[in-house]
């Protein structure tokens, strides 16, 4: 379980990126942190494994105050996939890239081998095991970045803007992987401003603006609050815009699959 208690974070240059954050995340949840660039999403993620420590207030990861722990030990519990995660590759081969963190965490050698094999298979990267990570395509690099984190099986997986620059096929794959990891009991925290992607995932949404949480609720609740989304400089999903403007047919803003909406429109037109 993750607890933020009145967390405030001020960068050395004086910019207050987090302002009075109170938050509880149960294990096994899928959470989306939403908000425009600069709202504080990434700063919040960096508090999960102690890369940043609160200026005031505290962050508890399974009861452990992050201020009393190291990034290395917190990272065993919380794996963060950063936005340009492919920027962290440095090993000659993909297998070694996968083994790096496992060795840092002092896993026994045979466990390292097993985990690397598992991660290669899970992310469909087996045929590339001895290739250089730099030779992978964009989508494959993203998958490797995720495989690296999954390899040590942290309880909590945080993804920072996983869909930036990704095409629809890659996004669909991402949703599949996230759901799969969640089914294995992982807590998933995604920071994103990709409303359509988040709408498809249908998680609990924490909406942020200027370092504060302005709303915390189900995807349906948050994404249909058009006024609030605008205030947070987000654009509502198309289905929500559509249903909100079909008030003359008795529609209320809602999240639904396009097919359902079409059937509903047809029914009301008759």
């Amino acid at each position: 379980m993750i607890v933020f208690e009145n967390v405030e974070y001020v960068y050395p240059n004086g910019f207050k990126a987090l302002n009075g954050i109170n938050l509880e995340i149960e294990s096994g949840e899928i959470i989306a942190l939403m908000g425009e660039n600069g709202a504080g999403k990434t700063t919040l993620l960096k508090h999960l494994n102690g890369l940043l420590k609160p200026t005031s207030g505290r962050v508890l990861i399974d009861g452990v105050d992050t201020r009393n722990s190291t990034v290395a030990s917190l990272s065993r519990k919380v794996g963060i996939v950063f936005q340009n995660a492919e920027d962290m590759f440095f090993s000659p081969t993909i297998s070694e890239e996968l083994a790096f963190a496992l060795n840092n965490f002092n896993f026994p050698e045979e466990v390292v081998k097993k985990r690397v094999e598992w991660a290669l298979k899970f992310m469909e990267l087996e045929e590339y095991r001895d290739k250089s990570p730099f030779l992978l395509s964009g989508g494959e690099k993203k998958r490797l970045a995720l495989a690296i984190i999954l390899a040590w099986s942290p309880d909590i997986i945080a993804l920072d803007e996983p869909t930036v620059g990704q095409d629809i096929l890659q996004k669909e794959k991402m949703i599949q992987i996230i759901k799969q990891a969640n089914q294995q009991g992982k807590t998933i925290i995604i920071s994103s401003h990709d409303v359509e992607f988040i709408a498809d995932l249908n998680p609990r949404i924490i909406l942020m603006s200027r370092g504060r949480i302005v709303k915390d609720g189900s995807a349906e609740e948050v994404l249909t609050d058009i006024q609030l989304l605008h205030e947070c400089r987000l654009i509502p999903p198309q289905i929500v815009s559509l249903t909100s403007r079909l008030d003359f047919l008795g529609f209320k803003p809602k999240l639904a699959r396009p097919e359902e909406v079409a059937v509903e429109i047809a029914r009301r037109l008759r």
Partner: peptide, 16 residues
């Protein structure tokens, strides 16, 4: 900034 994000990423992989 780039350097900072690399350091962050590698620390998150257990690099001390």
């Amino acid at each position: 900034e780039e350097l900072q994000s690399i350091v962050d990423a590698q620390k998150s992989r257990g690099l001390e």
